[in-house]
Write a protein that binds this DNA or RNA. Sequence first.
DNA 1: CCTACCGATCGGTAGG
DNA 2: CCTACCGATCGGTAGG
Lengths: 186, 186
Amino acid sequence: MSISKTDILSVAGTLFSEQGYHGTTMREIARACDVKDASLYSHIKSKEEILWEIVSRSAHLFLAGARSVPQSLAIREQMKLLISGHLEVIARDPQYATVFFGEWRVLAPELRNEIKALRDTYEGYFQRVIEEGVRQGIFQVTNTRLACLFVLSALNWTYQWFDPQGPLSVEQLAVHYATFIVRALS
Amino acid sequence: MSISKTDILSVAGTLFSEQGYHGTTMREIARACDVKDASLYSHIKSKEEILWEIVSRSAHLFLAGARSVPQSLAIREQMKLLISGHLEVIARDPQYATVFFGEWRVLAPELRNEIKALRDTYEGYFQRVIEEGVRQGIFQVTNTRLACLFVLSALNWTYQWFDPQGPLSVEQLAVHYATFIVRALS
DNA sequence: CCTACCGATCGGTAGG
DNA sequence: CCTACCGATCGGTAGG
């Protein structure tokens, strides 16, 4: 039986999310893939490459969600779509989201900076919607940067407790979150 | 020159917060304490004990903050004090808060469960204030558990970005956060 | 994808 | 608090 790079990322994502990057060994990943540890290296060149693939893919998923929000929509609708998009990325692959939020700092400086840049771009989408909302008188916020961090804080931490298999669906979660956040900003 | 257990916790807290528990070695901690690595073991019995001390102390600081809120106050005031108390614990020792939020899962099952119990007790304070607020008609929330998680999410993630040395003081942050949260629940 | 292997480093101990 | 040391394990490579 043969494995693929995707298999390795999936298995490693689960282990990293449970034990952390440094708390997981290549031997554990290999065992969970049902191959010998040396065999992993025909698919990836290092342990860090696995982390990089997981983290950068997550970052791009978040960005793709934000980019897909039509700027033609009303501000409140744009905010709702940013919120549901964010929560859906987390809910679709909670293990990857956990690795993304919890382990991206482990990356070497250069790679870490690439992730930071993606994150800053992503935050810009939230920031601009909030600023435009203030301009239109829809939101009442004195410090838009702080409001943006408040919103993203409430969203990011969900990876710690939200269970897509639980009684509450992502869609329901998104509706509740949108209500809270739109109220908080109004 | 002699070191104390407190010195070790402080140094380890900084290193753990920067590199993670598994990403930090006893040799690094010893070096930063300016002693040989074997010398650490006359103050602590294992690496995990260091983590336990940091994490459990943090947990108790959060709890102490919540317990100090007088139940005689108006609900809105109780919520504001819970918020400022939480943010002050994070701001007073950001490294410890980072280790607390980021590394408590690394603890052995029994210790981890002790931390979980403290966290559940802590969350109960927020939950009860929200429920009482709904009962009094001050808050309009259909799912109090979710509202509680929303509030704690917004609060917890602040350890990732708030810098007590920055332009915004903890007190100012707390005022903004209280405004957002009270609005979100109303 | 496997067998065999390696230098480096890990957390921790003995004994003073 | 130090010197000296240890078994175990780490990420990774050679060569097939």
